[in-house]
Structures are given as C-alpha cells and as structure tokens.
Computed example of a mutant assay.
Amino acid sequence: MSLSDQLDQDHAPGWKPEPGAKVIGTVTDVTTLDGTYGVYPIVTVDQEGGAGLVAIHGFHTVLKGELARLQPKRGDRIGIIYKGESKNKNDPSKTSHIYRVILESADPAAGPDWAQMGADAAAAPDAPSAGAAPAAPSVAAAAAPATFGDTDDPF
C-alpha cells in the first residue's frame, strides 16, 4: 500500500471482543501507545474474509505478554481469541482477561521494543493490565480507584 493510500485510510476501529471472539488475518502495522494503561502495543490486523482492519490494543496483561512473547511484525499472520475473564488464582478478588495468540511469521521487520513489553507484562503477571508501574506515580495514576483494572477500555 502506498503512503498516499495509508494517509487516506481512517484509523482501524479498536477490537472490543466478547468471550469467544476471534481475529484472524495479516498484521499491517505494529505501534505502541503510552496512555492511561502504561505503554502497550497496538497491532493492526487486516482480517480474513474481507472484514477489514481492526486494531488490537494489547493493554490487558495476558494479551500484552503473549504479543511480547510472539513479537508480531508486518506481514505476519496472526490469530487471537478472547476467552473471557478468569479469577486470579493468587487473589480471587481480581480477574484476568484470557487470550490465546498464534503467529505465523513472515519476514522480520521493525517493530516496538518487545523486550520492554515483556518486562512490563512480567512485572505484574497477576495484576490488571496497566503496564509496568512507573517509578513515581503520576497524579492521574494516584487518583485511580483501587478497583481499577482490565474492565475499562482506553477508547
């Protein structure tokens, strides 16, 4: 796709899955966002069957960890299923969002710092996805309610 075509394209809509929902297709872009949920990957996928582009926001801990482990790049084929929420085995008062990700690699290409994404996910494996905790919490982070977690979407 030419740069002109890319400029004419709208941003892909964010994926807001229900349990059992799947995305299968070709990775067209991999970026990161530094927002309320910390730094997390956004993987844009051109879905099979002409369903169009969708942006997978990897802010949930399990999804972020899987993406960091697999390190998707442009041209890779990817499949993601959202399995729903599961109680945290170490703290039943918390839940985790469960995903399974499968990747068929294409040519290597530049992408985000996956080592850092993996470190962020490993730093809080049982916590709601908020990325790695900053060294000094921001005012916004300090104002977040104690029950803040993966159930809020950043879009």
Results as ranks from 00 to 15, higher is better:
24 I>H: 13
151 T>G: 05
71 Q>S: 13
103 L>D: 03
18 E>N: 13
109 A>H: 12
58 G>D: 06
24 I>T: 15
146 A>D: 15
150 D>G: 06
89 K>F: 09
64 K>T: 07
141 A>W: 00
64 K>V: 00
10 D>T: 07
86 S>R: 12
133 A>G: 11
33 L>G: 00
104 E>D: 14
88 N>H: 04
108 P>L: 07
9 Q>Y: 00
138 S>Q: 02
114 W>A: 04
52 G>D: 07
126 D>C: 02
117 M>Y: 08
33 L>P: 01
130 A>T: 14
136 A>K: 15
100 R>W: 03
113 D>G: 03
145 P>M: 09
154 P>S: 04
141 A>V: 08
34 D>M: 11
20 G>L: 04
144 A>L: 15
11 H>Y: 09
61 T>A: 10
23 V>L: 07
48 E>M: 13
152 D>H: 12
41 P>G: 03
5 D>I: 10
34 D>N: 14
19 P>L: 02
131 G>Q: 09
82 Y>F: 15
91 D>Q: 07
34 D>W: 01
32 T>G: 10
14 G>K: 10
147 T>K: 09
32 T>W: 01
43 V>E: 05
27 V>G: 02
103 L>Y: 00
14 G>F: 11
112 P>D: 09
144 A>W: 09
90 N>T: 08
71 Q>D: 06
139 V>R: 06
17 P>S: 07
38 G>M: 08
74 R>Y: 00
73 K>V: 11
60 H>F: 07
121 A>K: 05
60 H>W: 14
11 H>M: 14
88 N>A: 04
147 T>A: 13
134 P>E: 08
58 G>P: 01
5 D>T: 12
135 A>N: 09
33 L>S: 12
135 A>H: 08
155 F>S: 09
53 L>K: 11
18 E>I: 12
122 A>F: 00
72 P>L: 07
17 P>I: 09
153 D>I: 10
96 S>C: 06
140 A>F: 05
85 E>T: 15
104 E>P: 01
7 L>H: 09
41 P>K: 06
87 K>W: 00
70 L>E: 08
103 L>V: 11
84 G>R: 02
90 N>Y: 08
145 P>T: 10
